[in-house]
Design a protein around this nucleic acid. Structure first.
Lengths: 180, 180
DNA sequence: TTTAAAATATTCCAAATTGGAATAAGAATC
DNA sequence: GATTCTTATTCCAATTTGGAATATTTTAAA
């Protein structure tokens, strides 16, 4: 999953909250998602152009009196489907948790999607399998540097798994509160 | 520290073991460093060209009978100094440990550099400070998602610190063995 | 009050990066 | 013998990158 695809989906996620123009999207990322995501103005416009070509957004120019005209982008049905598929798919690697998985979690919460617990469970499954593979490899290697390397991978994966279990616990509490 | 600078320094590190041509450098990365580093053939040649412009390597064409000519690259004194500065500098973020710090550790061991323990100590200091900042911020936030976010950062940083301490222990043993 | 800086909103721009393919011939495999 | 792989480097075109440019209004600073 390349950064480009994730970035498109993040913009789709923001547009799930309502139509926005490029400058506004940039403001949203810079203020509400800045702790785990960064997109330059150029990137946003380049992404939006390609996204419109791909039919996941449509734009409408809006004239205003004392300011440059805005190009308001709205998400299409195709865009919604694509976003929902993305947001409910676990990331493949620990290294993708810090940005991509956190973005998914952000949108799950922000949009009150019911896929939250499922996403976390699926993510736990993916990382447990990764950990199993790592521990397996660890037993087979003899080179000292490789031992260090896989030890690092194992420790990061274990920490991520523990964190995910915490997420699951606090998310379950949120769901209960929702019912009450 | 951008990927480009790290990649240049990794190539310098390989050239510390002796002169090599581009194709050979690619082979080295693909076989001996492939678990934590990946460089395409294009990237290698683009990097080498820039590095020669910057005076950290020099090249000499070597004709061979049944094969295309090779361009053998050697590291300059300037290149050595740059490499040694890089290899003894801790990385700034946890996210840089998985590639850049591991590369530094790889070269420290491969080249029997005496900077190993110092590097690990310095890296521990950097990450402890990071952890302090994270824990500090954690106490100040009220937003639930941010709590989750910083909890993740803290857990990854803690795991990396624990791993570094293990590295330090096993590296100290290596040093003792060296004396004996 | 005047001047300077920031905001609004999008496009422009040129250098760098990317992910192969191309090149030509020998060596290895089927 | 035919096919595929290896050797070694350059070529290539699309994409990405990191701002600047644009023109005007609004806001902040002097």
């Amino acid at each position: 999953m390349s950064f480009k695809v994730s970035a498109e989906n993040a913009l789709l996620g923001i547009l799930m909250t309502g139509p926005k123009h490029g400058y506004d999207l940039h403001g949203y990322v810079s203020t509400k998602m800045n702790q785990f995501w960064d997109l330059s103005m150029s990137q946003i416009y380049a992404l939006l152009k390609r996204m419109e070509r791909n039919g996941v957004v449509v734009s409408q120019e809006e004239w205003q009196e004392n300011r440059p005209a805005k190009n308001i982008f709205s998400i299409t049905q195709k865009g919604k489907e694509r976003f929902l598929r993305w947001v409910s798919t676990p990331v493949e690697h620990v290294r993708d948790v810090r940005i991509e998985f956190l973005a998914k979690l952000f949108f799950v919460r922000k949009l009150h999607l019911k896929e939250g617990l499922t996403l976390i469970d699926k993510q736990i499954d993916v990382l447990q399998e990764k950990l199993r593979v790592i521990e397996n490899l660890k037993e087979k290697i003899t080179d000292e540097f490789e031992t260090v390397l896989y030890s690092f991978k194992a420790s990061q994966t274990t920490a991520a798994l523990n964190w995910l279990r915490e997420c699951k616990a606090s998310f379950s509490q949120d769901q209960k509160k929702g019912i009450g």
